[in-house]
């Protein structure tokens, strides 16, 4: 666990507006256990931990015994953290996901703070995409979810996917899920669906901005999305995600199936988005690139977070080197 009292990255320097989410108060009766009344503020371990410690349990103001300041609306905050600066936009706590009897995630906990890029790396079947789909609320047959997910102060683990999207979360799924019969432009406009009525003129300008960022999409704006190449569809999926003007972007294996030159281009785009202030959670099998761009990163193995730290710390971690970097 990284020390939450330390600055996390040079990129994470913008002070967070304490009034950013004025109406988002967590419930008075938390379902997760909270800290005991006189418990001293626990200090997170400085280095990677094999599994999340109990102190990861989110503190909920108003709950009996919570020993942090109760004036500022906290969610998923950590003890000893200045709530006006250290507010995670996303908190995942003790997340367990089952597909029938099969357990895909086994108590995953992590935070993502505003303006960060957080990477999750891991092998096939580790549970990376399950984590992403569970956060964004994608419906899946036979799936059941335990644990808590908090986004911008609201608990979303039982919320419908479209409601989560309306809160400002955009998910670029692993399989792109562009609308194949619709044109590139229609796909982009669908990305802006939740703002369609109120911001019609602004959306038009944003479509043009997207075309500036992805010129290949401008050339194919009237072509059916299903006729685009894999790389073009990936760009369209990212562009469509951006059209919703999200606060938080989930990117699931964005490099999957792309030519090496496109992979580099795609990671440059991710970096640019973060520089513009977007918060990004990315899962990737291309560990080197994913760790290089990450402020913080987690290693997920068989549904458990086994290692965590800054991107640089994980690049240098011998276990990560051996398992994922080919050292």
């Amino acid at each position: 666990m990284t020390d939450p009292t330390q600055p996390r990255s040079p990129r994470h320097t913008q002070p967070i507006d304490p009034q950013a989410y004025p109406q988002q108060q967590p419930p008075q009766q938390p379902q997760a256990p909270v800290m005991p009344p006189q418990a001293p503020a626990p200090q997170p371990a400085p280095q990677p931990m094999p599994q999340q410690a109990p102190q990861m349990t989110p503190l909920v103001p108003g709950a009996p015994g919570v020993s942090v300041s109760q004036e500022a609306p906290l969610f998923g905050g950590l003890v000893g953290v200045d709530p006006t600066r250290e507010r995670p936009i996303l908190s995942v706590r003790d997340l367990e996901v089952f597909y029938g009897a099969a357990r895909a995630l086994r108590g995953v906990s992590f935070d993502v703070y505003q303006g960060e890029i957080v990477s999750i790396i891991g092998g096939n079947g580790a549970g990376k995409s399950t984590t992403m789909r569970t956060i964004s609320g994608v419906y899946e047959l036979l799936k059941s979810v335990k644990g808590q997910i908090w986004f911008k102060g609201q608990r979303i683990d039982q919320m419908a996917c479209h409601k989560i999207a309306r809160l400002g979360m955009a998910h670029v799924p692993e399989d792109r899920r562009v609308f194949p019969q619709s044109s590139v432009e229609d796909n982009l406009l669908l990305g802006a669906y939740r703002r369609f009525k109120k911001e019609r003129r602004r959306i038009r300008a944003e479509v043009d901005d997207v075309y500036d960022r992805f010129p290949v999409l401008a050339e194919r704006r009237h072509r059916a999305a299903g006729l685009l190449s894999g790389g073009e569809q990936q760009m369209l999926a990212i562009a469509r995600g951006l059209m919703s003007n999200p606060d938080f972007l989930l990117m699931d294996e964005p490099s999957l199936g792309l030519a090496p030159i496109l992979v580099r281009e795609m990671f440059e785009i991710v970096n640019d988005l973060a520089a513009e202030g977007k918060t990004i959670l990315i899962v990737e099998q291309m560990a080197v690139q994913a760790l290089e761009i990450a402020d913080r990163a987690y290693v997920l193995e068989s549904g458990v977070i086994t290692i965590e730290g800054t991107g640089q710390e994980l690049v240098e971690d011998p276990r990560v080197k051996e398992a994922y970097l080919g050292a």
């Binding site: 994608v138 419908a160 996917c161 479209h162 999207a165 998910h171 019969q181 619709s182 669908l190 669906y193």
Partner: peptide
């Protein structure tokens, strides 16, 4: 209309439509 676009999206892919904020 917005509803017309939603209808098209839901017909093609309900899950992808939900990711756009569309209630199927």
């Amino acid at each position: 209309t917005k509803l017309g676009r939603a209808m098209k999206a839901v017909a093609i892919d309900r899950d992808a439509a939900a990711l756009m904020g569309i209630s199927a």
